[in-house]
Every structure is written in structure tokens, then in C-alpha cells.
Design a protein around this nucleic acid. Structure first.
Lengths: 111, 111
DNA sequence: TTAAGATATGCACATATGTTGATATGTATT
DNA sequence: AATACATATCAACATATGTGCATATCTTAA
């Protein structure tokens, strides 16, 4: 493992692994999905558009908690809400998210 | 949105969204990837097997920090290390991980 | 067996994070 | 305008997390 080629790669990595904003955005996305409450919200919205109150009931959570986590998910462009009268209907802002979630689920099931 | 079908779905979700160990494992995986240092380690190991010391140099981190995060990544079955004399060569325990990382990268670049 | 290099671990600290109660804001109904 | 319902926000707290120092453990070389 101490051959020239390896040293070359190691040298190369020093430049390649700087903390870019792209990296930070990726980490922010992972972090957003790294919480049970938020993933449960995602999974719920994957099946149906839901209001905050409905999410509160379905997930058996505090209304304040749901609002807080929704705002965090909104910041990461994972969900979006549209107002309908008194209610706000939340939905996944991007179906692509579920690809990632499903991939992780598949990975977990293999272990 | 107040039709019977919607109510039916909402009813169904209550059972469907319990906090299973499968869910917790998924969240644990996301959480493991929700840190800049750990993702940098993953990205480095994606390109080459590396010892702890090499990771320390390449990523410009404290040796203790690298060891701590490696042990966390090991717990999640993301990396594995094999001893070679004084060194321990770390590598990704599963190429499949990169599929997830790449997917997230792609998603981030679309925004 | 002693010394030196490589890695892991325990501890402490600062910071980040998730939750909740209280309250504010927005919206429709009367 | 007053009330009630839905959602968001603020402040505070408890807990979780990442890092680094000091030190322990393991391995090889002398």
C-alpha cells in the first residue's frame, strides 16, 4: 500500500476534499433526514398531502413540534405548503426524495 | 381534500407510521451521513483505502477526531478496517453507500 | 524488554438540536 | 368586530453531538 500510485492518490485527495458549499448542502440534506420525526413526516406526505393538524394527529405529535420540523424541511426544499383557507396543505416538494429514502431503506434491510 | 378517500388514507397512516426499528435504522444511517467530517471520510475512502494517519493528514484533522468518527461509521457498517502491521487500512464496507451519496449530490446540484 | 509508531478510548467542554408551553399571526364565519 | 380555528414563532430547557487533550492499547523493530 506504500507504492507510488497510492501516494499520488493521497496527494490528490488533499485538494479534492475541501469543505465546499456543495458538500455542506449534501450534509444539510442528510441532517434533515437524520431525525425520526422528520422522516415520519416525509413518509406520511409520501402517501398523501396533509395539513399540519392532520400530521399532528396521524403522528401523535405536538402541533408546535410539527410546525418546527416542517419549517426545517421547507428550508431544505423537501416539502412545500400551499394554503387552502384556514389550512395549509403540505406535500413533498420533489418526488425524487423518495428515491433516496427508498434506497436507504433497501440498504438497511440488507443488514 | 375532505373527501372520504382522504380520511381513509389518514386513518391508515396512523398504523403505518409507527416508530419501527427499521425506521430507526434508516434514521441512524442518515444521521451518520449528516456530518461534514464523516462525509469527507466517506468521500476519501471512496477513492482509496486509507490508514487513520493518512485520513488525518488528507483531511487535516485531529487523529482523535478521525478515530472517533471512524468508530461511529463502523457501527453503522459504512466502513471496515483491516489491520496491516501497525496500520489499519480503512475502506468502505459497501460500494452501495456511494449510490446514496451520489444520489444526494445529484439532488443538491438540481437546486 | 524497551522504545516508538499507530490507533482507540475516556473525559470534559462548548455547541447544536428537539421538544414544549405560551403566545402571536393569519383566516374564515357569524 | 368578535370569535374560533389553524399555523407559526419565541423562549427555555434538557439532551445529543463533535472535538481535542490525555492516556491506554496494540504492534513492530531494535
Amino acid at each position: 500500500m506504500e507504492n507510488p500510485k497510492h501516494l499520488e492518490i493521497v496527494e490528490h485527495l488533499k485538494d479534492h476534499l475541501t469543505v465546499s458549499s456543495e458538500l455542506e448542502n449534501m450534509v444539510a440534506l442528510f441532517k434533515a433526514l437524520g431525525d425520526v420525526t422528520r422522516v415520519r413526516i416525509i413518509l406520511a406526505l409520501a402517501e398523501s398531502t396533509l395539513s399540519v393538524t392532520e400530521l399532528t394527529e396521524v403522528l401523535d405529535l405536538n402541533q408546535s413540534t410539527v410546525s418546527h420540523q416542517l419549517s426545517l424541511l421547507k428550508q431544505q426544499n423537501l416539502v412545500k405548503g400551499t394554503r387552502n383557507g384556514k389550512n395549509i396543505h403540505y406535500e413533498l416538494s420533489d418526488r425524487h426524495i423518495m428515491t433516496i429514502v427508498d434506497q436507504v431503506k433497501a440498504h438497511v434491510l440488507e443488514h
